[in-house]
Amino acid sequence: MNEQQPTSFFNKLKQGLSKTTKGFSDRIDSLVNGYDILDDDFYDELEEILITADVGFDMTMELLDSLKTKVRERKTDDPHIVKTLLKELIADALSVGDRNIYIEETPSVILVVGVNGVGKTTTIGKLAHHFVKRGTKVLLAAGDTFRAGAIDQLEVWGNRSNVPVIRHQEGADPAAVIYDAIHAAKARNTDILICDTAGRLHNKKNLMNELGKIFKVVDREYPEASKEILLVLDATTGQNALQQAKVFGEVAGITGIVLTKLDGTAKGGIILAIVKSMGIPVKMIGVGEQMDDLQPFNAIEFTNALLGD
């Protein structure tokens, strides 16, 4: 996963994140430059910046507390130190767990879950491309049999990177699609099977149970495969993302997060609270609409891109 040259990766990331970054690092910069000493007004303004980045009230308070402690330790009241310290704190909060997607061990199966409209199918298209580029043999399973057009959408992505798609018709049992896909993956000696699932709101009990059924099929039919369950989160989502992560985490045993739509102005700050409270690593981020716009996540580089050098 880390074969790319760091420079090109970083530039790409910075470019993709430019809009996300802009508001944020600019505001931090002007805050830092606008104050002579670290007083209450300074922290109030910083609080506002963090909250408007969707970091959430509790997490913001926590960050500010840690920041104040660090500042005290350094015995300084120079605002310029804040940027460095904040970078450390955020990178720290995001550096959790193993960020590799397990493809070294084959066969493996990746299940992609999330609420409606976060970009699951697109993420799968990009993931497939990502793996094919590395010479891996990929198979896709069109497990979203609910949304109109979802199967066709996945097929278009499959065609783009020359990856076969196992599909049934709309309205079919998604577990049956996954079942067929697993057997196809075995028969074709596929390295990675990536399964799409229908978007579902986490508070819909029946739909979450359906997810359980899909997992059972995978466990029973494909015990030899290493499993990766990716939750796709939309960076534009606010505090509800935490709830999504919690419920999907309970039902699906999420192993990693993909944060999409970071090419907008949304900062996706809620990810801090999620990673912190659940200990699930962010594995990939989506920074654009092109095939290559799905990038492995690196906490330090991400923070650097977010806050500026």
Binding site: D54, G238, A266, K267
Partner: peptide, 10 residues
């Protein structure tokens, strides 16, 4: 989307 965060304003 009703779940949109602070960015809804932008």
């Amino acid at each position: 989307d009703a779940m949109t965060g602070q960015d809804a304003v932008n």
